[in-house]
Design a protein around this nucleic acid. Structure first.
Lengths: 246, 246
DNA sequence: CTTGACATACGCACTAGTTCGTACATTTTA
DNA sequence: TAAAATGTACGAACTAGTGCGTATGTCAAG
């Protein structure tokens, strides 16, 4: 009971925004807005680089050991800076974790946006989208890991971040448009729910990466092998499309 | 560096089998073999019940907080016994976690075995199998959680347990038989790999549960709603079958 | 059917080592 | 010189694991 309370307090308490902990929000703005001259010459003070460095190391640590398993001291050691700086910039372990999570989400948003699918025929557009999702998850195991960890924690941290919630909406709109065009053109027989379709695609792509180890151990199969990857990519695309055509 | 070493040492060191820690293996045997008279009357010494009690609480703790996040003291507090007993029976935190994991796997093995699918027509057999998988994952979020946690730890604990590895093989044989019959009967056009098909089914069913929180948060959708469940169950079945028929 | 030796089951209270976080001092930049 | 950035050393709380003593049940001998 006492332990539970302490643990809960710990989590709730992380809301207190430390001096610079908000700097994550305008990070990019800062970099663009004028005085980024420090980075060029090999001077010393370089907050942006320091923060990025910390985030890189922290991502690695958290994705490998989980949130509770990740050690702040271990992160500090692998950084070119000190533990003091982690707390200076991110306020707390949870603050750091949240920053890692937000950065991971921000990274993928950009990738998903510049897909021009509206001029492709529906079926082909869907295949491109599936291909992209597949390759994205395959190329970003860190992201997959973080999402898995978030789920273990009931998405508690994601709830606090408005930024994260608003992201994947665009994917749904893209899918919805493709489905509508497909039905209108008569290539898709079924009027499916776009979120369901997104889930069908996402589940497979995500699972391949998230459950790589247990699945690989049980069935003694290396899921990262190129031939296997190609076969799987084709399978999920065929499955989705044949489903929509039925 | 030092921290890493210590952590690794910690993990490796848990192999040492404590006096009674093997009792998990012949747990059922013990219970059946004669003197189980203790349990009936409300006497005091009751190893089986104590161990079960500990495992119940530990399952809850680990699935909620992860392996590193789970606290032995917290488990001990919620048990009707003491922390000393946890170490008496399971040797270490990792030992306890492993016991939890094994029990979870053992539980599902029994369910999967008594499915008589060989006399059903292929398509229907597959639908029943998919239905079963779907409902199993839905009904056992603890199991799903544990597998997710195992993946974060690179399936390190599963590797040590021979018992776990040998389980899911039967599912593959079942699927292989169905696919063969389907192709022979001409209802399935495609000669698919049974492990791939298992993955396609498993991924969706698993993802619905494992990513419930993040998915629910992003798309504001409650995946445990009956109507949604039924729709999803139908979707994955239709997708798999239409894929095989194409 | 007692009695006593012995093994198993159990609990209190403690320890050694971590782990997050911070107070204080110092340097760098503007 | 003020403000931002950084390093060092330390502490309070937590956490896995244990030493030691007690209770409970078993079994064999008297």
């Amino acid at each position: 009971m006492t332990l539970e309370q302490i643990r809960k307090f710990d989590v709730d308490n992380r809301l207190s925004t430390r001096p610079v902990s908000v700097s994550m929000a305008d990070e990019t703005v800062k970099a663009d807005s004028g005085m980024a001259a420090k980075r060029e010459n090999g001077r010393k003070n370089d907050p942006q680089r320091t923060q990025e460095d910390i985030l890189d190391v922290a991502t690695e640590e958290f994705t490998t050991h989980g949130l509770a398993g990740g050690r702040v001291d271990a992160i500090a050691e692998k950084t070119r800076t000190s533990k003091r700086m982690i707390y200076y910039y991110f306020g707390s372990k949870e603050g750091l974790y949240l920053a890692v999570l937000e950065r991971a989400y921000r990274k993928i948003r950009t990738l998903e946006e510049d897909l021009q699918l509206s001029n492709l025929p529906p079926e082909q557009a869907l295949r491109v989208l599936i291909s992209t999702t597949f390759e994205h998850d395959e190329a970003n195991p860190d992201f997959v890991r973080l999402v898995s960890i978030e789920n273990i924690h009931h998405a508690a941290h994601m709830l606090r971040s408005d930024a994260i919630r608003d992201l994947n909406v665009s994917v749904i709109e893209t899918i919805a448009a493709i489905l509508d065009r497909g039905v209108a053109a008569g290539v898709f027989a079924r009027k499916a729910d776009p979120i369901d379709i997104h889930m069908l695609i996402s589940a497979f792509c995500f699972f391949r990466v998230s459950n790589r180890y247990t699945f690989g151990t049980i069935f003694r199969r290396d899921l990262s092998e190129p031939a296997t990857m190609e076969r799987h990519k084709g399978m999920i695309a065929d499955a989705v499309i044949s489903y929509l055509k039925t």
